[in-house]
C-alpha cells in the first residue's frame, strides 16, 4: 500500500545549489523521505550526493528551492536555528570517522547526548549500550587512535544513533572500509535504524550498499534521474556472431 503523502518527514522541492566557486552542485532535485524509511542516494562520484545531504541537513543555506522537515521550512531558518535542529533532530555520519581524538570511545558517543543537556550518568549508560550493540563495547575506554578504522567507524555510527535522531544522514559511511567490515557496519546501521524507527538518508555510490535501503534515489550531474544505469542490452545475435568470428 502506498503511504499517504503527509507521512513524509523530509522533503525537498526544486532544490538548486551552486558552490561558492560557481561550479554547479544541484539542479532541481525533488525528494521525499517517509518516516522510518531508509533512502539511498546513489550516483557516481561528483554527482552531488554529499551536496544534497548537506542541503537537506541544513549544513549549508538553501537559497533556491525548498527543504521542509516535519513542516518546518529549513530554507528560511537562520544558522542558529539550523544548528539547533541539527543538534536535536539530526545526526550525521562522515565518510571517515571524525571522532574527537582527545576523548575515548564512550565519551565520544556520549558527547552529543551531553550537548543536548543529558546528564553525564545517563549519557554514559546510553553510550555504553550502543557501543555494546555495535560490537565495540570492550573497547569503550580506548582513545580513537587505539582503535582500528572499522571500529572507529562503528563508534561514529554509535555516536550518531545514540541520540535517537529523527533523521540520520550517512555520507558514504562504508567508503574507507574493506568489504567484510563494510557489510557488518552497514548491517548494524540498517538494523539499528529499522528497530528504532530512525529515518536514514544514505549516500553511496556502491550498488550493494544501496541494495540494503528501502528505496533509491539516483543522482546524475546534480539532477535526480529515474534510471542511473542504462538497462542491460539483451544479447543480440550480432554480438554473438561477432564474438564467435574472432
Amino acid at each position: 500500500m502506498e503511504a499517504p503523502p503527509d507521512n513524509d518527514v523530509l522533503w525537498a522541492r526544486s532544490l538548486h545549489f551552486r558552490h561558492p566557486d560557481g561550479s554547479p552542485g544541484l539542479a532541481g532535485v525533488a525528494l521525499a523521505v517517509r518516516d522510518g524509511e531508509i533512502v539511498a542516494v546513489t550516483g557516481p562520484r561528483g554527482s552531488g550526493k554529499t551536496t544534497l545531504l548537506r542541503c537537506l541537513s541544513g549544513l549549508v543555506p538553501v537559497r533556491h528551492g525548498e527543504v521542509w522537515f516535519n513542516s518546518t521550512p529549513l530554507h528560511t531558518l537562520g544558522p542558529m536555528r539550523r544548528e539547533q535542529l541539527r543538534r536535536e533532530r539530526f545526526s550525521w555520519i562522515d565518510p571517515a570517522p571524525a571522532l574527537v581524538p582527545e576523548l575515548n570511545a564512550w565519551e565520544n558517543v556520549a558527547l552529543p547526548l551531553m550537548l543536548r543537556g543529558v546528564g553525564r550518568r545517563r549519557a554514559k549508560v546510553a553510550a555504553l549500550e550502543w557501543l555494546v550493540r555495535l560490537d565495540v563495547g570492550d573497547k569503550c575506554r580506548n582513545r580513537p587512535h587505539a582503535l582500528q578504522q572499522a571500529e572507529r567507524q562503528r563508534v561514529s555510527i554509535a555516536r550518531a544513533l545514540a541520540t535517537a535522531p529523527t533523521i540520520l544522514f550517512a555520507d558514504e559511511p562504508t567508503a574507507p572500509l574493506h568489504r567484510g567490515d563494510r557489510t557488518q557496519v552497514l548491517r548494524t546501521l540498517t538494523s539499528a535504524a529499522r528497530s528504532h524507527g530512525i529515518t536514514v538518508v544514505l549516500a553511496t555510490h556502491d550498488p550493494e550498499t544501496a541494495a540494503q535501503a528501502d528505496r533509491s534515489v539516483h543522482l546524475l550531474d546534480g539532477r535526480s534521474v529515474r534510471t542511473l544505469h542504462l538497462p542491460d542490452v539483451p544479447d543480440t545475435e550480432g554480438r554473438v556472431a561477432w564474438s564467435l568470428s574472432v
Binding site: E83, Q84, R87, D94, A98, V100, P112, L115
Partner: peptide, 10 residues
C-alpha cells in the same frame, strides 16, 4: 569542523 557538523554550538 566535525563538532560543528555534529551540532555543537559555537
Amino acid at each position: 569542523a566535525a563538532l560543528l557538523r555534529l551540532g555543537a554550538p559555537a
